[in-house]
């Protein structure tokens, strides 16, 4: 996918672009807010990664300007700030997600891919399908290969998120944020236990495991 990186720290932007290119994405870079705005107006992007603090025009102003013009491209804010109020400010300005520096690269890529995916699913789905796994969002039921799987409400939400982002890595922090709605890093890997419970329910008795652990990143649900 095409990604616009608006970041005034050239070294950080370079590293980010290299990593994203290696992951198979197309990157365009803007070194400050004005450059970023011009690039965003010119080209079509799947996701924009925007640093909050930049010379000339800061990230929030840039995104506000784009949103006023009707540009709905998903935006991931990067910030060295990271207080909760900064996150709220960023999201209010029209950002779609928020990542605090310093971040781990897998976290960045997972969030970028999640944002791009969210854009695809514009229409309201009532049935999610990944491989032989099916989730009925209205009846709140899950089947694998026709066999019903009994899930707790939180396990259901967890699986729903994994299914919506099937094939992508999702990090533990993302799961805590999107499934539990808390924005902090748990010290221990409490999320792992929830995943392993879910895994034992959806993968047990099947010869192929769908819920994979991605080393250094998090988890991925494969079809």
């Amino acid at each position: 996918m095409r990604i616009l990186i608006v970041e005034d720290d050239l070294e950080a932007a370079e590293a980010m672009a290299r990593g994203l290119t290696e992951a198979g994405h197309d990157c365009v870079r803007g070194a400050d807010g004005e450059e970023g705005l011009a690039a965003a107006r010119e080209g079509q992007f799947d996701v924009m990664v925007v640093d909050r603090m930049m010379p000339k025009m800061n990230g929030v102003q840039l995104v506000e300007a784009l949103r006023r013009e009707g540009d709905r491209t998903p935006v991931l804010f990067l910030s060295a700030l990271g207080e909760v109020s900064d996150r709220v400010d960023g999201l209010q300005a029209g950002g779609d997600d928020y990542l605090v520096k310093p971040y781990a690269f897998p976290e960045l890529i997972a969030r970028i891919e999640a944002l791009a995916r969210r854009r695809d699913t514009g229409s309201v789905q009532t049935l999610l399908k990944v491989g032989d796994l099916e989730m009925d969002l209205i009846a709140r039921t899950v089947h694998r290969a026709g066999q019903e799987i009994d899930l707790q409400p939180r396990e259901f939400q967890l699986l729903e998120f994994m299914m919506r982002h099937a094939g992508q890595s999702v990090t533990r922090t993302m799961l805590l944020e999107k499934v539990w709605h808390y924005h902090f890093d748990p010290q221990t890997n409490v999320i792992d236990v929830h995943i392993s419970r879910l895994r034992s329910k959806i993968d047990k008795g099947f010869d192929r495991a769908m819920l994979q652990t991605v080393r250094g990143a998090g988890y991925r649900l494969d079809a």
Binding site: V84, Y182, H183, F184, P186, Q187, V190
Partner: peptide, 11 residues
Amino acid sequence: NREFLAQAVAN
């Protein structure tokens, strides 16, 4: 602050 308090309890 909900986030900080949640983090405190979690810690």
